[in-house]
Design a binder for these strands. Structure first.
Length: 295
DNA sequence: TCGATTTGACCGTC
DNA sequence: GACGGTCAAATCGA
């Protein structure tokens, strides 16, 4: 059942990738035409369209990684490190219940933990609900490291955890490290995910419109959980930049693979061009290559 | 009252 | 023994 489902998803994704690849090629042709008649302005516009296709293709590509067990090398190639960690927390929970009280700190160090990191200029909301469970001063680090686990660890046994280390003050720079996958079934939220509502100027609105299915029916939206604050630290998401690994994790959950070929993605921001932030980090050669594979 | 955060203690790894 | 990751009691806040 699961394999049939993922096979379906794989076909859908291939179709979507084909369509997007075609659209990107057409945009490329359009760019040539417009650059002659409209100059830079026209070229910029088409480049945005071009980048939008690239970004969506990138997300599809990364979402495929979760479906396919052949993703190890691809993950490495997109700046994620996966080390193959078995669930240690579950072991610990068994231990703690069997050996009674005061087994605090009974754990195994994450030497071979499956993890991925991405430096960010601000603490950004990744759409998951995290609960802080610890803070530790780290030697040779100017700031303490914060430890978070998934809010649904208790009720759903979700083993995802993350650590956030502030590595620079000016400009502020954070290094979140993610461990494990979210196995929790997140609650649905509105189709518009607002990142950082604290600042009008910097608020970023992601809007996904699909003309085949309603927003509420789309598994994409159902995959987003309710968003909670991560901590009381400075949460000014004024300059969000995602790279490929980050965007795949933040925007695409493992179960998030169904993209209709006609899906449209709009990124609305008053001051910031998020799309460009994403696409700048995407190697278009990779995308071209990927399109060829998808054919 | 209940859920989230803080913080000291505990324990495994290096 | 130092360090890092986690636990859980105490505390906070909505």
């Amino acid at each position: 059942m699961q394999s049939a489902w993922s096979e379906n998803m794989s076909l859908e994704r291939k179709k979507a990738i084909e369509e997007l690849g075609r659209g990107r090629e057409l945009a490329n042709q359009l760019r040539d035409l417009l650059s002659k008649s409209l100059g830079d302005e026209g070229e910029d516009l088409v480049m945005k369209i071009f980048n939008s296709f690239g970004n969506t293709l990138s997300m599809l590509r990364n979402s495929g990684d979760y479906d396919d067990e052949v993703s190890q090398n691809q993950r490495n190639s997109i700046n994620m490190s996966w080390d193959g960690r078995k669930s240690e927390d579950s072991e610990d929970s068994i231990k703690s219940t069997s050996t009674q009280k005061d087994r605090r700190g009974c754990y195994k160090r994450r030497k071979c933990a499956e993890s991925w990191t991405k430096d960010t200029p601000a603490l950004i909301d990744d759409g998951h609900a995290w609960r802080k469970y610890g803070q530790k001063v780290i030697v040779n680090a100017n700031h303490p490291r914060n430890y978070y686990r998934c809010t649904h660890k208790v009720d759903q046994g979700c083993q995802a955890t993350k650590q956030v280390q502030k590595i620079e003050d000016h400009p502020p720079k954070y290094r979140p490290t993610y461990y494990g996958h979210h196995t929790c079934k997140n609650l649905p939220v509105a189709s518009h995910l607002i990142l950082d509502s604290t600042s009008n100027d910097s608020s970023i609105l992601l809007s996904f419109a699909n003309n085949l299915t309603s927003k509420h029916d789309n598994p994409f939206f159902l995959s987003f959980p309710s968003v909670k604050q991560e901590s009381k630290e400075d949460h000014t998401t004024s300059d969000i930049t995602y790279n490929r690994s980050l965007s795949s994790e933040y925007l695409m959950s493992p179960e998030l693979t169904l993209f209709e070929s006609s899906v449209q993605m709009e990124v609305l921001s008053s001051d910031h061009d998020v799309i460009s932030g994403v696409v700048n980090s995407v190697d278009l050669d990779d995308l071209l290559e990927f399109c060829e594979v998808g054919r």
